[in-house]
Design a protein around this nucleic acid. Structure first.
Length: 462
RNA sequence: GACCCUUUCAUCUAGUGGCCAAGGAUACUAUGUUUUCAACAUAGUUACAGAGGUUCAAAUCCUCUAAGGGUCGCCA
């Protein structure tokens, strides 16, 4: 049984990088018909824990990832941690340290001055004297004094660190609350994790957690440390690089399938394949194939994927989704034509909505450059004649009918398409680019087309 | 500063000693198609961080250098 987890600290929204490691963990659990657990790391100041948790769950919901069992809150497990702390104290594997914060700070300064790695010097490790007055001790764990701390990372290979690099770190604060590296090891063990996939900013925590595993006699899970996602310049991803909150992608009109497809290909690949359905990801993903190096974040490919997913999507589902973006065409008699006319011109749902609105909304004004170019010469005369031709036609049931009227009119008068097309387009849409004219006219119907063209003629002549 | 990790086109990546004068995708450029824009099709530009080894043969193995990242909390 493979058991993986995602363990965020509830400090805010779900970050795009967090979603990727969660996705990797989720996929691996799914592939092995195992479990994917969710744990909230709130041992410290549990600031707006509820909001943050809800934000994370909302994001999971949106992308369609689900976790197994109940959410585990570390803040509700303090009695468990206390039990283990006492056990280690009894066994002499942990000890009370009476060093004050001030003393610790000056020790660090000294070490900095000597250009050493800063670390606790173990001064209370074997202390059996009288403790100083007025100092609430912290509990420190005894780290090995020599040798190496080694583990085999599933991504990076053998990680080897001198034991002297790791100090006797604090496992319980002066107020008795346990610290991160201690509780993570306990929970990962007690939750039965077989596989931990996490960001490589945790790489250096692993030896520390190893010390806890060893002290408690726990078996270690397999670790996979995934390199960070950087921005396009290779620097750490920050808010100024665009959307880091997963839910921002919904706002931008990105499909969750596209986002996951984009993320799964950051640091992982399967030959030359670019597009993966969720089922394919589950079938093919293996953490041993994760790349060692960090990847840079570039939205071009996401947009390309999103456009592809939109095109492939079931039309009714797409139209339903559009409602979330303020556009309801579900009862429009020509809804399929509307999608046909616009889908190739939009990379996001938001763009699709604006493309559709461009057709559906009567233009309020004409783009200055476009009208200058299109509304000149005989434009108004041509538009007038064309509308008469349209009105004279008795059947206008398909885009092609409109197209035929255009063709007939142009060949009768020996005119190029642009002579009619340009002014007509600006009359209908207010600008020079957009969907095919025949489709637009068919969607709008004769009356609306005539009305928009008459407006344009009025504009030209005034 | 110390320790650890990383390094193939602009970007995501394929590549585990010969199949690589390095493949795919995005982006970019050009051409075609189209009433415009987009989409599509075709073509094109661009990369093994550097230097030394090992080997008949190196993007792939070794060493050094450089650059980038991470970590050094009674945060997580």
């Amino acid at each position: 049984m493979v058991i993986t987890r995602f363990a965020p600290s509830p400090t805010g929204y779900l970050h795009i990088g967090g979603l990727r490691t969660a996705l990797f963990s989720w996929l691996w659990a799914k592939r092995n018909e195992g479990k994917f657990l969710l744990r909230i790391e709130d041992t410290d100041q549990a600031r707006n824990s509820d909001d943050a948790l809800n934000a994370i769950i909302k994001a999971f919901d949106w992308v369609g990832m689900s976790y197994d069992g109940d959410v585990v809150y570390q803040s509700k497990r303090f009695d468990v941690y206390t039990k283990y702390i006492n056990q280690l104290l009894d066994e002499g594997k942990a000890y009370k340290c009476y060093m004050s914060k001030g003393e610790l700070a000056s020790l660090r300064e000294e070490q900095m001055a000597k250009k050493e790695r800063t670390r606790y010097d173990g001064r209370y490790r074997d202390f059996d004297g009288t403790p100083p007055d007025g100092v609430e001790p912290v509990i420190r764990i005894k780290a090995p004094l020599d040798g190496k701390l080694e583990f085999n990372d599933g991504v990076k290979g053998l990680i080897s660190i001198d034991a002297t690099e790791v100090d006797d770190f604090v496992i319980a604060r002066a107020d008795g609350t346990p610290t991160y590296n201690f509780v993570v090891a306990i929970d990962d063990f007690e939750m039965g994790l077989t596989t931990v996939i996490r960001g490589d900013d945790h790489l250096y925590n692993t030896p520390k957690q190893m010390i806890v595993y060893n002290a408690l006699g726990f078996e270690m899970p397999k670790f996979y440390h995934v390199a960070m996602i950087n921005n396009e310049q290779g620097k750490k991803l920050s808010k100024r690089d665009g959307a880091t909150d997963v839910m921002d992608y919904q706002t931008q009109g990105i499909l969750p399938e596209a986002l996951l497809n984009f993320l799964v290909r950051l640091g992982w690949s399967h030959g030359d394949q670019e597009e993966f359905s969720i089922d394919e990801m589950i079938e093919l993903f293996n953490p041993k194939d994760i790349n060692k190096s960090s990847s840079n974040y570039n939205l071009d490919k996401l947009m390309w994927l999103n456009a592809n997913y939109m095109k492939k999507m079931d039309r009714d589902k797409l139209i339903e989704l559009l409602k979330d973006y303020g556009l309801d065409i579900s009862t429009h008699s020509k809804k399929d034509n509307i999608i046909d006319a616009t889908i190739e011109r939009a990379k996001t749902l938001v763009e699709l909505v604006s493309q559709i609105n461009l057709i559906l909304d009567t233009p309020k004004e004409y783009d200055a450059k476009s009208s200058k170019k299109a509304f000149k010469g005989e434009a108004s005369k041509i538009l007038k004649e064309f509308i008469e031709e349209l009105k004279a036609k008795d059947i206008l049931d398909t885009p092609k009918d409109y197209h035929d009227v255009m063709d007939n009119y142009l060949s009768k008068n020996e005119l190029g398409f642009g002579k009619l097309g340009q002014p007509l387009r600006v009359a209908l849409l207010g600008k020079m680019s957009g969907s095919g004219l025949d489709e637009i006219m068919y969607i709008l119907g004769l009356d609306e087309v005539a009305s928009r063209v008459e407006n344009a003629i009025g504009f030209i002549e005034s």
